[in-house]
Design a protein around this nucleic acid. Structure first.
Lengths: 336, 336
DNA sequence: TTGTATGCGTTATCAT
DNA sequence: ATGATAACGCATACAA
């Protein structure tokens, strides 16, 4: 038997009475090779379960056919749908997907990126962690010629391709929607005010208030955490003290927290408080009450991000490409 | 400048006036090396962004430090939570995660598995596609010494480590719950009757009927698809014709479909129809009405699956390990 | 059309 | 403690 099941090109060539090069040619597209020889090789290869070793091939080719996806979390409607989109494009092109979860931890993010300088991935698609820090470390990627595409949550100061949605405009619109529904004390729920995405959404909120002549109250910007229990407490306190009659959640998770709190405090949605939220939840209509959402084209964003990355692989200077897709506000009972 | 940003061990050694071997030693744990030399090497390496090439290292070591995860879909509460669990364990051990989505397509599954014989991954964690077919092709993995762990959706005839939940028992219990709530005509919603997981859950349903002396009606086994519109039609027809007063959804998605249909047909849940479902939805309490669920420990299953895989990496004969975790029935308003 | 030889970047063995 | 060298498995340039 020998080392059963670990046949390499050399052994295969011996069994076929051919040279390694000829066998190799059978597996590559180009290079001349006799059709019959090729078929004979492939047939035996299949029988013996031979496949060219990935590391050896890639060491020569200096590429991995891997794409690294770095996201804060995966158990999240938005990100899982986006990954789905990336997968569709990557699979078409024969690329593989590596997944990294930062849990919004900046150190993890840095560690992952640093771990990708070694050829494990040919490119990176990333939605950045929530923490505000020095991210110049990312510039090293450029030096290594590893293409990078940001999506949704981006670092504005890093010069690379980006796929985002019209956060400012839809936030403005969402806030106007609440105002038109009669809300006067609208809370804006954020997880991280510093993050560019939080800023843009907040700016839309602020400008809508101003546009409508409503006063801005700093307390109504409710800075939440990633901890579900803490958020419950934060929101409970907010509802107790702020006379809130409208909630704009910049992130799905915070809308759910608001639902739980309102339920427990016997606050009726939408009669006493109206709620709108960024959300990719497909069953938003099934909630009690059905949630009015600003729905981002998550899947499509993934497709676009992957497409940009492949453009960069092809040598096109896509670094400056900024794709902006539109979110859609879907009105449901929570803002009736 | 030269080929900027693509420094290798040879160049690094030259700049340091050292040999490749010494530089290499600085990066590996073992082998003797002068501490000062080591620090000097690491310092310069960091400055130049040098990292040992992944393909070269792995070609030598004959391993990739990659784990392949093959699942039907990722935009799914259960699977994304399970992946989260796998990630936690894998990250701890310095392993990377490759993700493959089969969309319940058997050909894709086969293609992916076949694509993993080449060293790209050291092991596979898999939840199988829904189609019933000949899966003996998987035995090749064993020959290649690529450890395999199934979770949740398994092929019973493939002899390898498995992580599942007590599907039969919890299905029995779930059905009993409906019966005790007064249901007489309980529909069982499946996506694929052939798949082992569907069978086990169905058996629990059947035995509970028998146990309670309720008649079994074949029409009440409602075979659904993966297409959301088709399911809507199938269920609408079922509700129109079968006098259903209870629904047991073997899969989350089908419970949602039932919710939509009931809403549109003005069927009140739980007054006219009670609904229970396998589900990993974290916001089940927020649904209208709150959904009674059989909740699988998704995250934990991922952790267990990964742990088993590492045990196999370590050479332990875990092939026969069958971990069975318990699901939990959480009663909510949909079965009140 | 096929074979020979070299190098991809690393690490382990053996020498010094 | 450090250096020279072979080998991991493959794919190409060149020779035949």
């Amino acid at each position: 038997m020998g080392n059963s099941g670990n046949i390499n090109i050399k052994e295969l060539a011996q069994r076929l009475n051919l040279s390694k090069s000829t066998v190799s040619r059978a597996f590559r597209g180009h290079s001349d090779i006799n059709l019959e020889t090729k078929e004979r090789i492939l047939k035996v290869a299949k029988e013996l379960n031979y496949q060219p070793n990935h590391h050896a091939s890639n060491l020569r080719a200096q590429q991995s056919k891997n794409i690294a996806i770095i996201v804060p979390e995966i158990a999240n409607n938005f990100f899982s749908q986006a990954i789905d989109g990336i997968e569709t494009v990557a699979r078409e092109r024969g690329y593989h997907l590596l997944i990294y979860l930062t849990a919004d931890n900046f150190e993890s993010e840095v560690a992952y990126v640093n771990d990708l300088y070694n050829g494990r991935a040919d490119g990176i698609i990333m939605s950045v962690s929530g923490e505000a820090n020095d991210h110049s470390y990312m510039n090293k990627l450029e030096k290594k010629h590893i293409p990078l595409v940001f999506f949704d949550r981006v670092y504005d100061d890093i010069n690379t391709a980006k796929v985002t949605t019209n956060d400012y405009a839809s936030s403005f619109e969402a806030t106007m929607h609440l105002i038109e529904a009669g809300c006067k004390n609208i809370a804006f729920l954020v997880t991280n005010k510093q993050l560019s995405i939080g800023k843009k959404r907040m700016q839309g909120y602020l400008d809508a208030l101003k546009h409508s002549g409503l006063p801005f109250r700093d307390e109504l910007i409710v800075d939440c955490s990633n901890d579900i229990n803490k958020n419950y407490d934060i929101l409970t306190h907010a509802f107790k003290t702020l006379a809130i009659d409208g909630v704009f959640a910049s992130v799905e998770r915070l809308a759910f927290a608001a639902y739980y709190v309102c339920h427990d405090m016997n606050i009726n949605i939408p009669n006493q408080v109206k709620v709108i939220s960024f959300s990719s939840l497909e069953i938003a209509p099934l909630l009690n009450p059905a949630l009015t959402t600003i729905t981002q084209p998550a899947y499509d964003m993934g497709v676009q991000a992957a497409t940009l990355l492949f453009r960069m692989f092809a040598g096109e200077e896509a670094v400056n490409d900024q794709v902006v897709l539109s979110s859609k506000i879907i009105t449901r009972n929570s803002t009736l």
